[in-house]
Design a protein around this nucleic acid. Sequence first.
DNA 1: CCCTGATTCGC
DNA 2: GCGAATCAGG
Length: 193
Amino acid sequence: MSWTDERVETLKKMWGEGQSASQIAKELGGVTRNAVIGKVHRLGLSNRSAGAPAAKPEAKAKPATPAAPPKPEAKPRPSPKTEAARPVSTEPETRPAVPLRKQIIPAGQPLPPQPSANEISPEALAKVNEVEKKSKKISLMELTERTCKWPVGDPATEDFWFCGLPVQAGKPYCEAHVGVAFQPMSSRRDRKR
DNA sequence: CCCTGATTCGC
DNA sequence: GCGAATCAGG
């Protein structure tokens, strides 16, 4: 596949709409998201904060130095393996990872952490309720960095498990549980009238 | 693990 | 110019 005018047009259009490179690639077909990204860059597009805006090392600051642009050859050859020095870690896996608390959760009451006096969105609760049906019901040992660590059931009984659904970006819970775990900080929306 | 874009460099 | 491989971040 080559970048025909038409395809480039589609690319521009979709990129402008904020579509992700992978989506564009899928739409175009015959190209990977890398190809799309590469093309985007070559087209001069680019610059689209998508999860990783980050700080651009803007070293383009040119005060008033029309001459003598230093060009220190950077590092054109990054070693394929970044494990230059890898200390023989002795399993520092001692961190809790789970915000479990010693609170007593009544059996049958999926009232996890931080219910407090917070009113969680009915939708969020419904979502949780729904997601609980699909939960993997994994054990503590099965918890990984990408499994939802939301406890369900009564820890004092066998009827207890962790959600285990896939989490997303770094969050400890799945989407549904994140919704009730982290309040938008303003759940104090007293409905006046 | 999934995802995202950014960059490099052989082709 | 192209894009796979790689990097870097969520």
